[in-house]
Amino acid sequence: MNEERLGLRERKKLEAWRTLRTEAYRLFARHGYEAVSVEDIAAAANMSRSTFFNYFTSKDAVLRDPEPGDRERWLALFDRPADEPLWDSLVVLLLEFAKQISEFLTTMKRLELQSPALTERTLDRTHPFYRDLRDWVDTRTKPGDELESALVLNVALAAAETAYAHWEPTVDFAGFLRTALECLERAGAGVARHG
């Protein structure tokens, strides 16, 4: 999303969305996820409860929903060479996507220390990026290779999730990327032996 091209109304909506998310993260960090209500978030953002629901369907959606414009940014990552091996493409896609959402991942990792139940939400494969990634893999899959492609995708996702699970929030994001690359390379060595 090119914010310079947005009209005043769209810019104000984006600003309100970001304010709600920022205040939610601040409150979650201070009081823990479970202790914060939708009303608390709306009040901290100087908005009404109904205004909150104009932007998010629930408190959980504040954590889960991508920022407006994120989808366009991650879809651009799928422009990979057609002859590039699927595994190599997945490594690039997962690492580049992690860079795009580095602030979110860092915030979530810190919040998980206070509210361990949030780990399940962070690694939720129903996020729109994962649906787009599965669709992209399908476009790269020849008929009859669906099992192989699904296995390769799931191994790559498991490697990335393993890196996230072992990442300590005291380690900078570059450290996470190094760990993610190491996990993907180790997993890829096993995938390469079989495909």
Results as ranks from 00 to 15, higher is better:
78 F>N: 02
25 Y>P: 04
4 E>L: 15
71 R>K: 07
108 M>E: 00
36 V>S: 02
101 I>T: 05
120 E>A: 12
51 T>M: 07
83 D>P: 07
88 D>Y: 11
8 L>V: 15
92 V>Y: 08
65 D>Q: 03
168 E>A: 12
115 S>H: 11
116 P>I: 10
158 A>V: 12
162 T>P: 01
54 N>C: 09
139 T>F: 01
156 A>P: 00
6 L>H: 01
89 S>D: 07
159 A>I: 04
107 T>E: 05
113 L>A: 13
5 R>E: 14
160 A>G: 07
117 A>Y: 13
156 A>T: 02
65 D>E: 02
154 N>T: 12
17 W>D: 05
60 D>F: 11
148 E>L: 15
32 G>S: 08
99 K>P: 02
187 A>C: 11
96 E>Q: 07
64 R>K: 15
1 M>C: 09
163 A>N: 05
172 D>E: 09
128 P>R: 07
86 L>S: 03
139 T>I: 03
195 G>L: 15
140 R>L: 01
63 L>G: 00
63 L>W: 05
114 Q>F: 13
66 P>L: 08
11 R>V: 12
144 G>N: 00
88 D>C: 08
138 D>H: 10
37 S>R: 07
154 N>M: 12
136 W>N: 00
94 L>K: 00
2 N>H: 09
92 V>K: 12
117 A>N: 15
12 K>M: 14
139 T>S: 05
140 R>V: 01
29 A>T: 04
194 H>D: 15
116 P>N: 08
9 R>I: 14
31 H>Y: 13
120 E>Y: 15
174 A>E: 14
6 L>R: 05
69 G>P: 03
175 G>P: 01
174 A>R: 14
69 G>E: 04
67 E>M: 10
187 A>W: 02
131 R>W: 12
90 L>S: 01
15 E>L: 10
131 R>E: 05
188 G>L: 06
43 A>K: 11
94 L>P: 00
8 L>C: 13
12 K>D: 10
124 D>S: 10
135 D>Q: 09
128 P>G: 04
166 H>P: 05
1 M>N: 06
22 T>A: 15
38 V>E: 00
162 T>S: 09
121 R>V: 14
71 R>S: 04
159 A>S: 05
47 M>W: 07
113 L>W: 08
10 E>C: 07
78 F>G: 00
59 K>T: 03
129 F>T: 02
39 E>P: 05
45 A>R: 06
113 L>E: 11
179 T>Y: 13
79 D>N: 11
16 A>T: 13
135 D>E: 10
44 A>F: 06
46 N>A: 13
132 D>E: 02
65 D>S: 08
95 L>F: 06
39 E>V: 13
101 I>E: 02
133 L>N: 00
159 A>D: 01
11 R>M: 11
65 D>H: 06
191 V>A: 01
188 G>N: 09
28 F>A: 03
40 D>W: 06
12 K>T: 12
96 E>D: 08
107 T>K: 08
60 D>E: 14
146 E>T: 03
72 E>S: 08
88 D>G: 09
27 L>M: 04
185 E>Y: 06
183 C>F: 11
195 G>S: 14
1 M>T: 06
9 R>N: 11
185 E>I: 08
66 P>G: 01
173 F>N: 04
68 P>V: 08
22 T>V: 15
187 A>K: 05
87 W>M: 07
21 R>V: 05
184 L>F: 01
43 A>R: 13
142 K>T: 06
141 T>V: 06
136 W>L: 01
73 R>Y: 06
179 T>W: 11
